[in-house]
Design a protein around this nucleic acid. Structure first.
Length: 418
RNA sequence: CGGGGAGUGGCUCAGUUUGGCUUAGAGCGCUUGGUUUGGGACCAAGAGGUCGUGGGUUCAAGUCCCACCUCCCCGACCA
């Protein structure tokens, strides 16, 4: 992509409203814009990142044996009455009536819908287990949206649901998801903690949260320095490690994933049953597994930035390489930039060419801000020696290479990363 | 909802305390022309504003009074 034709509205200064590092950088780097409190627009760069995260999630979910589907975001309120959650989530649900007076809501979550669906199509133990997932927009009338995309009223979630014959099957699927989640978050380039958590209004017994340590985190995780004990803080009491009695330390975190062993809460309420080998009716055992997809963008930035801007992990970055011709009026410089561009694109890399006119400073600042991991800098001075620079955003390192070996060097660097 | 803060061109803000030298300003960004080009350049000329909204006080309101709206931060909710 050519920068001069791209819609990447970067900002020199962050709007005064933004406080969290990720929020400021998302705005400054031209990735998102707020429409109204808790409601955000994803600009091209932001959408590219969102799509890359979704790709990682799809790959790992598919590999785990889950199947993707797309549930509706409009849901009949009647369905919610069956589980009683129309009351529990009354404040959170965005409700409305259509012209016929039907009571509807925009789905804040999808346990009811998926259970209803499975109920109608699963009747035998032979059809179980089955694991289904979707990546979809959720709508919640949050009490207080904050930190940009971290807590929004409209956000993208990956939610998966497992349906099993018995507890043993549930535990197996739970384990599979647990493993898949670890892979997903690792591939996203973030450090995370896994805590035993409260299942809250979701119901069920066992539940784990995937927590990303970050300054703008809303949750506090307690951890023990001596042993591996980790726990989400629920009540503000003086606590000691239950295993080794060491005083626990606190960390601010962002919750990016939460998995639950639901049991029969929804299947019982909605009558999702099957016939077992003996011909006896049993209730389906469920699990549910969520990832805050859009929120992950913020979590990644919280852990991957410096004072100059974002530092994208290779697998998340909207582009693999940024080409920066220093002098936009020098034909040799620009010609070489375009040559590298087409050769790298031909190799299948995502390339952004900063072909804008203007001074080098602006381009360097924007390059650091949007955080592409590799930067090819082509300038008159180095070119006199037949050299071109390759800059590593994370390491802040500059490698000087012969102008004829730029493409192969870049290819090598990208392969090593992925 | 309770507590704190803020609304002035696209962005950052000054001016509001003490109403009238303000015909509403600055920097950045934008347009045109020119000089520049290795870390947010320079000169010149321009475009861009219902000072959040409505009402009131006054000879006179961005500035004072009342009501409302919006946004941000702290708490309850959660991916």
């Amino acid at each position: 992509m050519f920068w001069s034709k791209a819609f990447i509205p970067t900002l020199k200064e962050a709007p005064q409203d933004a406080e969290a590092a990720s929020h400021k950088l998302l705005l400054r780097a031209g990735m998102i814009r707020m429409l109204t409190s808790g409601v955000y627009i994803y600009l091209p760069l932001g959408l590219m990142v969102l799509n890359r995260i979704e790709t990682i999630i799809r790959e790992e979910m598919d590999a785990s044996g889950a199947q993707e589907l797309l549930l509706s975001c409009i849901q009949p309120l009647e369905l919610w009455k069956k589980t009683g959650r129309d009351q529990q989530l009354a404040e959170t649900m965005i409700r409305f009536q259509d012209r016929r007076g039907r009571n509807l809501c925009l789905g804040p979550t999808h346990e009811e819908v998926i259970t209803e669906l499975v109920k109608n199509h699963v009747s035998s133990y032979r059809q179980l287990p089955v694991v289904l997932y979707q990546i979809q927009t959720k709508f919640r009338d949050e009490i207080r949206p904050r930190f940009g995309i971290i807590r929004a009223c409209e956000f993208v979630m990956k939610d998966a649901y497992s349906f099993d014959r018995d507890q043993k099957g549930l535990e197996k699927n739970y384990e599979v998801m647990f493993t898949a989640y670890k892979k997903i978050f690792t591939r996203c380039g973030i450090k995370f903690l896994i805590t035993e958590a409260d299942s809250g209004i979701m119901g069920g017994s066992v539940s784990h949260e995937f927590m990303v340590p970050a300054q703008s985190g809303e949750d506090i995780v307690l951890f023990c320095k001596k042993c591996d004990f980790v726990k989400t803080l629920t009540e503000d009491k003086e606590q000691k490690c239950p295993r080794c009695n060491t005083p626990l330390e606190k960390k601010q975190t962002i919750e990016v994933g939460h998995i639950f062993q639901l049991g029969t809460k929804y299947s019982k309420a909605l009558g999702a049953c099957f016939l077992d080998e003996k011909g006896e009716q049993q209730t389906i055992i469920m699990g549910c597994y969520g990832i805050g997809v859009s929120r992950l963008i913020s979590a990644i930035i919280e852990q991957n930035h410096d004072e100059d801007g974002i530092i994208w992990p290779e697998d998340i970055s909207p582009f693999d390489v940024l080409i920066l011709p220093v002098q936009s009026s020098n034909e040799e410089v620009v010609g070489l930039a375009k040559k590298y561009y087409s050769e790298l694109e031909k190799k299948g890399f995502r390339v952004l060419l900063d072909d804008r006119e203007g001074t080098a400073g602006v381009k360097f600042k924007d390059a650091d801000l949007i955080g592409i991991p590799l930067r090819v800098t082509i300038g008159e001075k180095n070119l006199q020696k037949g050299e071109v620079e390759i800059g590593l955003r994370r390491e802040k390192k500059i490698i000087t290479v012969d102008k004829n070996s730029v493409v192969s060097k870049i290819a090598g660097l990208i392969k090593k990363g992925s």
